[in-house]
Design a protein around this nucleic acid. Structure first.
Lengths: 199, 199, 199, 199
DNA sequence: TATGAATGAGTATTCATTCAT
DNA sequence: GATGAATGAATACTCATTCAT
């Protein structure tokens, strides 16, 4: 597969078409119910062309899932740090709240990333040379800001990771399954927990 | 399909064979790579017989996943409460530790339940009339023991749920993906978090 | 299989249940979509019992199809010959009209017998010793009444048969398929043809 | 699926292979006893290729049944109208006779089209834009030639349709079931009826 | 780079029938 | 006669991927 910068404008266009077609169909019908055939039809591209741009169906999915994760995280982070007031914990909760609200409005995105989320994938992309400095920066910044006694940076990163994971898990079960309660009911408890952890 | 108590001894036996065959193969090869054919072959039973006992492949999977969850939880809870010393938090952490150790030894079980876990399914079974009082009791007992200021029982249950979810999530990513760190490295941080939440 | 007169009252009852269940389900869902399982469930009878009364699924179907044919024909014939006025042709057309009206109201019966009608079956039953004298009598009577020059009884029977077949065929295509026209539109043309043939 | 005219020569060839394989096997073993598997094996084509050319098994059957109907009708019509002598009725009977003789020699074709004949299918194909003008022309010509007092063109078409249906029905029961008599015995009576109807 | 015809492995499920009890 | 658990053969259809053009 070619890397992005080698692609001509026309190729960029085809690639983008495939991504948008995949995103639409995966979100609409799920992974199992979306065939490569449907994707190329929607992207107005020949069957074989798909494999010129993506190694296989999973590769396309991974890219889409990553894009969703990335944009949701970045958007929430930026909004939280654009706030003029608020301490670290308040900003963190504001960020989580934004993420929750996003998924509450787009539950299909949540369903897709939750069932197919792959942390190694995320990690790999973040640490690829020169790639996604932005996202790396966000995670570092969150870890550095954390004030817990006798904690080093790696441990801080783990705390952030654990907390975010918990939020995503709860999002999924509360929004998708309404279990153990709906999201709005869960929110105060969740924020109480976060305050205890980060405080 | 028949309910469990209507089954004769011979039928119980066949059913048990199917469950064990399914468990073995699902754990060994995953859901997608396990055919009904393989299951009945291993269970020494005719193809049609499978559908006498389970509505479809998913029904079998659900039962297996539920059984795993249940037994892991109960075992850990019992061990923790058999301790003579220790306060609530200590027992809770002991319980989580037991769960983690279980899955560290049987990562395939973890992979299976994480990809196919359905909380509504669990909920449904727990609350069915007269069914699984034991598991219900465990969850209630954990919630009741929780001492956080100004918290009611439902909120307490949510805290328990959130905490357990976080543990399961971390188990999955640390044990299966070794991300963001391996399980042993994550443990102290996790227990620190738990202490902060429950304390 | 047992013949009818050997059956006890209880057995008659079971047999009748199976017939009614089969009739209902065949008419409702068609042959392919009706399983023996569904039939025995509806008849409140064990699976094996079915095969005590009918050699197989087809045997049940044949009996049902025969019953429908028989009763429709007899009913129409009797009504036509109960008329006080009218010559042979008029009565014949009256009879056909009654059959058509019957099937217009019960198109599922028409679909069932048309797809699964077996003339040899009918013949076999009619000519079985002492069996269905009534139906034989009807066909004979229709043939004998026919006045066409230089025609013998066998030929007369063939004319009757051909005419009835044509009516059934047209019923099927006009009522079920609305082709080449609907039944009401076809009727005058059909009766014109009958008059030409029998006149 | 592609329409016929879009197919390359190679594809035409594969399609033809599938049609011939289907025809052979359907005629030899009937619809139920012919698997798609057997068809593709005989056509020397991969399983998936079948579904490139036909939507499903039924679609293939429909095409075959239509082809048989079409060719038998056209052949008979042409032979009848190639006659130098004979009035309308004589030609019509000649045509029917040709059809009967055809099916007498190929009873399996008769069995296949009779059980699976779908007049709407025929109609649909005939009336598709620019499609099968030839067959339409035949039916129109037969209807126009009919001389019955006070009859309009639509009614004439219905008479033709009813007559042809009767012939096909009798073919089926006389040739396949030998009921109510064999075909040769039935012929004179049938032609007598036709003369009465068309005369 | 782009195409799209061809491939063929892969599988869940149904159901008529039997037979031990 | 009655049961109903057990059988296992039988089959249409999908779809990711390839490769000749």
């Amino acid at each position: 597969m070619l890397t992005r910068r080698e692609l001509s404008a026309k190729m960029q266009y085809k690639r983008a078409n495939l991504l948008e077609a995949g995103r639409y169909l995966f979100l609409e019908n799920g992974l199992q119910n979306t065939s490569v055939d449907a994707i190329v039809r929607r992207a107005n591209v020949a069957k074989g062309t798909f494999y010129l741009y993506f190694h296989d169906k999973d590769a396309l999915l991974n890219e889409i899932v990553y894009d969703i994760n990335r944009s949701v995280l970045l958007k929430a982070y930026r909004k939280a740090y654009a706030l003029e007031t608020g301490d670290y914990t308040a900003r963190f909760i504001y960020m989580i709240d934004d993420i929750i609200n996003h998924f509450a409005e787009k539950p299909r995105e949540l369903a897709l990333i939750r069932k197919n989320f792959s942390w190694p994938l995320l990690k790999e992309r973040i640490t690829s040379v020169g790639e996604d400095l932005e996202l790396t920066e966000v995670l570092n910044s969150l870890a550095k800001g954390l004030c817990i006694e006798d904690i080093n940076l790696d441990e801080a990163k783990n705390v952030i990771y654990a907390t975010v994971e918990m939020c995503f898990s709860l999002c999924y079960s509360c929004i998708i399954n309404k279990q153990p309660s709906d999201m709005e009911t869960m929110k105060p408890t969740l924020y109480l927990i976060i305050r205890k952890v980060l405080g």
